[in-house]
Computed example of a mutant assay.
Amino acid sequence: MLPHDAAGDAQGSSATAAPDSPAGAPPAGDSAGAPAAGAAFARLYGEPLLKLPNDLYIPPDALEIFLEAFEGPLDLLLYLIRRQNFNILDIPMAQVTLQYLKYVDQIRLSNLELAAEYLLMAAMLIEIKSRMLLPQRPHDIEIEAEDPRAELVRRLLEYEQIKLAAYDLNAVPQVDRDFVRTQVFIEQSLVPVWPDVSPADLQAAWRGLMKRATLKQHHRISREELSVREHMTMILRRLQSQRFVEFADLFDVAGGVPVLVVNFVAMLELAKETLIEITQAEPFAPIYVRLAYSPA
Rank of each mutant, 00 (worst) to 15 (best):
150 A>I: 08
174 Q>G: 12
62 A>S: 07
143 I>Y: 09
22 P>G: 14
293 Y>E: 15
223 R>T: 11
5 D>A: 10
184 V>P: 02
144 E>H: 05
109 L>H: 08
20 D>C: 01
281 A>P: 07
124 M>L: 07
74 L>V: 11
199 P>S: 01
137 R>Y: 02
84 Q>P: 00
264 F>P: 00
175 V>P: 02
180 V>H: 14
161 Q>A: 07
3 P>W: 09
174 Q>C: 00
62 A>G: 04
171 A>F: 13
270 L>F: 04
24 G>V: 12
280 Q>S: 11
234 M>N: 13
124 M>R: 10
187 E>F: 09
275 L>R: 05
9 D>Y: 07
36 A>P: 02
119 L>K: 05
202 L>N: 04
25 A>I: 04
31 S>N: 06
37 A>G: 10
8 G>I: 02
76 L>M: 12
58 I>A: 11
221 I>P: 00
292 A>K: 08
174 Q>P: 05
237 R>V: 14
198 S>K: 10
23 A>Y: 05
134 L>S: 07
261 V>G: 11
294 S>Y: 03
181 R>F: 15
248 A>P: 07
175 V>M: 12
231 H>R: 12
8 G>E: 14
58 I>V: 13
1 M>L: 08
278 I>V: 11
162 I>T: 10
264 F>G: 09
6 A>V: 11
231 H>N: 08
187 E>L: 10
8 G>T: 08
16 T>A: 05
149 R>K: 12
97 T>V: 04
107 I>Y: 05
112 L>F: 06
260 L>S: 14
204 A>S: 08
219 H>E: 13
242 Q>W: 06
216 K>F: 04
40 A>K: 04
240 Q>A: 09
156 L>S: 03
284 F>Q: 15
36 A>S: 02
65 I>P: 00
70 F>K: 02
259 V>A: 13
91 I>W: 02
3 P>T: 11
106 Q>I: 08
251 F>Q: 01
262 V>I: 15
108 R>I: 14
72 G>K: 00
